[in-house]
Simulated assay, not measured.
Amino acid sequence: MRFLIGLGLCAALLAGCTSSEDRQYFDGQLYNAKLRKVDRKMDQFQVTVRPVSKSLLGAREAGRYEATSYCINLLGSSDIIWTEGPDVEEGALTIDKDTLVLQGRCRDAR
């Protein structure tokens, strides 16, 4: 029984792992980018990227990549209407505790 529990735990841990070959580098760095829906609307999202201290340029691109991938998978289009996008001036970006916050909406290609 302990063996099965241990085996199940190992399988669960490995399922959440991504090999370093599968991860994307931005400005030579790896980032933790997470996307979540806003107000339960599938097309509206918020992306958080950390740590910004590695490279602001890399963090911006990691956020853009996460959002673009989401919109392509959701609607088949990479078009995004940014409300807080990666292309604004550095002073206009939302950065909180070494985390960049981006927001936008996937634009339907139809």
Rank of each mutant, 00 (worst) to 15 (best):
T18N: 13
V88Q: 13
K34W: 07
V47G: 00
G91Q: 11
A15V: 09
D43E: 15
L93K: 06
V49Y: 02
V47C: 01
M42R: 15
W82Q: 02
A15N: 13
S53M: 06
T18M: 14
I5Q: 12
A11C: 10
Q24T: 11
Y65T: 12
G63Y: 06
L56M: 05
Q29K: 11
E84F: 08
D108W: 12
V49R: 03
S20A: 12
I95F: 03
T68E: 06
T18P: 05
F45V: 00
S78Q: 02
G8N: 12
C71K: 05
R107T: 06
V88N: 04
L4C: 04
S55F: 04
E21F: 12
K54R: 15
V38E: 13
L100G: 03
R60I: 04
K37E: 12
K97T: 09
L100Y: 00
L35C: 05
E90D: 14
D79I: 07
R60V: 03
R107N: 11
R23C: 11
D22M: 13
F45T: 00
A33P: 02
T94L: 12
K37R: 14
F3T: 08
Q44R: 15
G63E: 01
S53T: 09
A59M: 03
A67C: 06
K37C: 10
Q103A: 11
G16K: 08
D98N: 09
C106W: 01
S69W: 07
A15Y: 11
R105Y: 04
M1V: 08
E90M: 07
N73Y: 12
C17F: 14
L7F: 13
K34E: 13
R64T: 04
G91A: 07
A109G: 10
A11W: 11
T99W: 00
E84T: 14
S77W: 03
L56V: 03
D22A: 14
G63D: 03
E89W: 02
A92G: 11
G76D: 09
R23N: 11
T18H: 15
G76E: 08
M1K: 06
K34P: 07
R50D: 09
T94D: 10
D79C: 07
A92N: 14
C10Q: 14
V38Y: 06
T18G: 15
E90A: 12
K97M: 11
R60E: 01
V38G: 05
V101Y: 08
G91H: 09
R50C: 09
V52W: 03
G16I: 07
E89S: 14
L93R: 00
L9I: 13
G85R: 02
A92I: 10
R50K: 15
A62N: 01
A59S: 02
R110K: 15
T48L: 06
G8D: 11
I81P: 07
M42T: 14
N32C: 14
